[in-house]
Amino acid sequence: MRERLAAAAAGVAPGRYQILAAINAVHTSARDIRDTDWSQILALYDRLVRLDPSPIIALNRAIAVAELDGPEVALAIVDRLAEALAGYHAYHATRADLLRRLGRSRQSRAAYDRAIDLAGNTGETAYLTRRRDQLR
């Protein structure tokens, strides 16, 4: 612990967990989602993706992009992750939400169906089913 404090005091760049903690802090400091500082979150994800270029980090970064640049820009990022995240329910749930925001209900419903098929627990399944059923 002392070594980490000394490193932080010496100006050593933050690591993966420190950046994740900073992202969490930005989220929790907002009163609600509309007050979230998405530009700060995106800047933190930009740093994190350089340390950990995983597809899940890229997916999370795309959510911040959607808030700043719109769902169409984010969907292009998400669609490039299709092969790597085909079996990950959060990938399909993210796609479903972006498609919903773009008014593409039929495609959104299909993405929600896939996310529901892959969801790991009844709470996630119930939430995703509610979201899907709210589509026109």
Rank of each mutant, 00 (worst) to 15 (best):
M1A: 14
R4Y: 02
L5R: 13
L5S: 09
L5E: 15
L5Q: 15
A6V: 15
A8K: 10
A10D: 13
A10C: 01
V12I: 10
V12P: 10
V12D: 07
P14S: 08
R16V: 15
Y17I: 07
Y17S: 08
Q18F: 02
Q18H: 10
L20Y: 10
L20C: 07
A21L: 08
A21F: 13
A22S: 13
I23K: 01
T28Q: 15
S29E: 07
R31I: 14
D32A: 08
T36A: 01
T36C: 09
T36Q: 10
D37P: 07
W38K: 03
S39C: 01
Q40I: 13
L42H: 02
L42P: 00
L42W: 00
A43S: 08
A43P: 05
L44A: 00
Y45I: 03
D46E: 10
D46Y: 08
V49T: 09
R50A: 13
R50D: 10
D52A: 03
S54R: 01
S54F: 00
P55E: 02
P55D: 06
I56G: 00
I56N: 07
I57P: 08
A58V: 05
L59K: 00
N60M: 02
N60Q: 08
A62M: 04
I63L: 05
A64L: 02
A64F: 03
A66N: 06
A66V: 01
A66E: 05
E67G: 04
D69H: 15
P71W: 02
A74N: 07
A74W: 04
L75K: 02
L75D: 06
A76I: 11
I77P: 04
R80K: 14
L81T: 06
L81H: 08
A82D: 03
A82E: 08
E83K: 05
E83V: 10
A84R: 12
G87L: 05
G87H: 09
Y88W: 13
A90I: 15
A90W: 09
Y91G: 00
A93I: 02
A93D: 05
A93N: 01
A93T: 00
T94S: 01
R95M: 00
R95G: 00
D97E: 11
L99V: 05
R100I: 07
R101I: 11
R101T: 15
R101V: 11
L102I: 12
L102C: 06
R104D: 03
R104N: 07
R104L: 04
A110H: 08
A111C: 12
Y112I: 12
D113T: 14
D113W: 12
R114N: 10
A115L: 12
A115E: 08
I116C: 09
D117V: 12
G120I: 04
N121W: 09
N121A: 04
T122W: 11
G123M: 09
G123Q: 14
G123D: 14
E124T: 06
T125P: 11
T125E: 07
A126N: 14
Y127G: 14
Y127T: 15
L128T: 09
T129I: 13
R130Y: 13
R130H: 13
R130I: 12
R130P: 12
R131Y: 04
R132A: 02
R132F: 08
Q134S: 08
Q134H: 11
Q134P: 04
